[in-house]
Amino acid sequence: MKKTSLFLLLCLILFLSACGQSKDSSEKNGSAADDQKTITYQSENGPVKVPAHPKRVVVLSTFAGNVMSLGVNVVGVDAWSKSNPRFQDKLKDVEEVSEDNIEKIMELNPDLIIGLSDLKNVDKLKKIAPTVTFTYGKIDYLQQHIEIGKLLNKEKEAETWVKDFKERAQQAGKDIKKVIGKDATVSVLEKFDKQMYVFGDNWGRGTEILYQEMKLKMPDAVKKKALKDGYYALSLEVIPEFAGDYVILSKSDDTDNSFLDTKTFKNIPAVKNNHLFVANAKEFYFNDPLTLDYQLDFFKEKFLGSKNK
């Protein structure tokens, strides 16, 4: 009897051990299976199978802030995103890449690649990982964030942010109009390389917030020349014609800014009235959630004062 009991006890121990190992194995396999799950994203170029939970995303243009704001890991970004001072902490260990760096992108082992529709080498990129591109301006800037949310399987999170942002920006617009007057005009200027530009309502630099959400007015000349294409190139002599009662200047220290010292610029009413608000161009280029939140705070501080930030 003792031998039989001992034999049964050993069998029970072996059985329980096997069950435990089976459970551990199942859990590990389940986790691996989760990593391999895919969803089908309906891109502008047709359906694309992408990871349900991407973990290594390469962003080749514009959308790094959208991806980071949704808590998805980025392993490679474009040069403009990498040079954005507001992204430095988040991107300090992230590689700078372009669509020409095929081997470098391959080494990063991405599970998803995102970029604009004019990307080069798309066929080569698709061989590395599922690649999804967007045409800039095809949909509005907030719907663009929701689309990236869909792509990353985080649509609800994107929609929640958009709803909250619109409420905050629109309320700020009402507050600003009370201060500057409902008919006051606002222009957004930038000196890029050797050329001065004025912007419409959908070309970053805070234009989406000022004109689309806050409903502030743009000068007639800006509306006529820049609204359709998003931007318009100016000569120094005609800047006064495009300058509103308030001017947002997106300024880069890498550019010749000697125009700031000219009589033409100094005599613009907005400049003389201290209605010139200067922003760091590298922080102001984009219209992703991280940048938009910063731009909104900037406008609230400049138009309303720091206490209203």
Rank of each mutant, 00 (worst) to 15 (best):
L260V: 00
R86N: 15
N73W: 07
K92G: 06
V132F: 09
A32G: 05
K150P: 03
D175W: 12
E95C: 04
K263W: 02
L236W: 05
F265C: 00
M1L: 13
E237T: 10
Y136F: 14
P130H: 05
R168L: 08
F259C: 00
V67E: 06
S5T: 11
T133P: 11
G30R: 15
L142R: 08
N66D: 15
D183Q: 14
N29Y: 09
V97E: 02
D118K: 14
F299Q: 05
L304H: 02
V59R: 10
G305Q: 06
T4E: 15
S22I: 07
I39W: 03
G206A: 08
K126V: 03
F259M: 01
L234A: 07
K266P: 00
L10T: 11
D164M: 08
K124V: 04
D111V: 00
K166I: 15
A243G: 05
W161A: 09
L6H: 11
K127S: 15
A270Y: 01
K266A: 00
Y232C: 08
V67M: 09
L116N: 13
A64R: 03
F277K: 02
L12C: 14
D140H: 08
E27I: 10
Q295W: 01
Y141K: 13
F265G: 00
Y246I: 08
E208S: 13
T262W: 00
F299E: 04
D34N: 12
D288Q: 11
K282G: 10
L112K: 01
Q21M: 07
Y294M: 05
I176E: 07
A129E: 07
T4A: 15
K215P: 04
G20M: 09
S258N: 03
V50S: 06
V50C: 11
V179S: 11
V77K: 04
T291P: 04
Y136E: 01
D183W: 08
N121F: 08
D78I: 01
L227R: 07
M106I: 09
G173A: 13
G115H: 07
L249K: 01
N29C: 04
K92E: 05
L142Q: 12
S117A: 14
S117V: 06
S81A: 14
K177Y: 10
K163L: 09
K228G: 09
L304S: 06
N73K: 15
G71H: 04
Q195I: 14
L9G: 09
D254F: 10
P110A: 02
I148M: 08
K178I: 11
L304A: 04
T262G: 01
D93C: 01
S25H: 12
G115V: 07
E208D: 13
L260W: 00
S235T: 15
A184K: 12
G149I: 04
N308W: 06
M214A: 13
A270D: 03
S17Q: 12
V67C: 07
S22A: 12
V74D: 03
K3Q: 14
Q144M: 11
D24E: 14
V271M: 00
L296T: 12
I39P: 01
V179Y: 11
A226F: 02
L70K: 05
Y232A: 11
Y231K: 12
V77M: 05
A52N: 06
K127E: 15
T62P: 02
D34G: 03
A18E: 01
K223I: 10
G244I: 02
S258D: 04
K309Y: 08
K228F: 06
H275T: 01
L292C: 05
